[in-house]
Design a protein around this nucleic acid. Sequence first.
DNA 1: AACTGGTTTAACCATATGGTTAAACTAAAT
DNA 2: ATTTAGTTTAACCATATGGTTAAACCAGTT
Lengths: 211, 211
Amino acid sequence: MSEADHNTEHEILEAAKKVFIRKGLDGARMQEIADEAGINKALLHYYFRTKEKLFESIFTQVLQGFAPCIVAIMTSDLPLFTKIESFADTYIDLLLENPYVPNFLVNENNRNPERFVNMLKGQGVNPNILRDQIKREVEAGIICDITVENLMVNLVSLCVFPFAARNIFCSMFGQNEEEYNMFIRNRKKEIPKLIIGSLQPRPNKPHDSVA
Amino acid sequence: MSEADHNTEHEILEAAKKVFIRKGLDGARMQEIADEAGINKALLHYYFRTKEKLFESIFTQVLQGFAPCIVAIMTSDLPLFTKIESFADTYIDLLLENPYVPNFLVNENNRNPERFVNMLKGQGVNPNILRDQIKREVEAGIICDITVENLMVNLVSLCVFPFAARNIFCSMFGQNEEEYNMFIRNRKKEIPKLIIGSLQPRPNKPHDSVA
DNA sequence: AACTGGTTTAACCATATGGTTAAACTAAAT
DNA sequence: ATTTAGTTTAACCATATGGTTAAACCAGTT
């Protein structure tokens, strides 16, 4: 029997991920995780001594799933516009596969900010490379000026928030799950269009007067 | 002695708001709320029989604090650009005064979507008026076409998400609290600029080809 | 046959927590 | 002086929950 097969640890991690992401640390019950994994509480504690340890595993696992995407846009050496398009595309795909993760992360970010910040430091997220790229492209006349901070916050907000506020928007617009997913898939193109449009260099002034 | 003075109920509500917003329904302890209100648990239950009831009060109170802003942009008859500017300005001010509310709402939205949806229905949020306005302004050549959904999601995402992900961005950019607040205040102008810029009608095509 | 590690069962413990209760106290109202 | 609403104190209850434990079970291994 291959190890990956009856690998109970893996089952537990999958189950814990599901439960923790949906209910958070406080809301999750060890019993529920055991049930979800198809085992019993004793065995659950046999593998992961405490709830905290189990949560820690899930948290880092989830975070590491989302880090590469962010690191890529921060560090790769593609042209900025390409990066933006690629980020929106892959990030939204990732989110569509893990729609509850934004809530989970926002929640944990609230409950235990230190853990979050410490975890991030280990991921090598450094805005300076992107800052330099922006500077270079501004000087080359490819884009008009913007801060890394505004660019990143705009991009991430537009991609992530529609997931965090899914129900709110859904009910606000009277959409069902599938319609909303379609709407979000559509945004894979809308978001870059919006941001890249705002970065188009203007002949004279950095901002146009409202007609 | 005026009622508003020793008004214990008010004290309790303030305390509960603080605790619930920071820790959520699951994380909040009745004892903690009592302490925060400077009273004891017995009296707390004397005023609000159950945790649920108390939470309900806080939840509706918080939601109603944020509804008017949304309703205004959906229903008032100002020109669209004015609305957008006004929304970003007043909404971000409101958020700066209640920085933990986005987390609270996202959290609750996750934990109990039904409550959220039901609550929203009572607030008279109806996108059709705004939809009509957009249609009119498109036909008048004031703006280029966009769906209400995309406009609202963009606007709200850009305003709210920087609060929900405060620590993440803060640590990502090495900013302290005050710098980040400044950054956000700055976005009161940046966000309308971005969105209004994208709505500027183009002479021929609805989207420009990348230079 | 004996051993081994993973697994189950089921009881159990300590603690936290939401909620209740009764008795006493205080201060204002009558 | 009595009443009354608000408040405190402190004990108490029921339950949920994280975590432990011991004994038995079962499948492969030796």
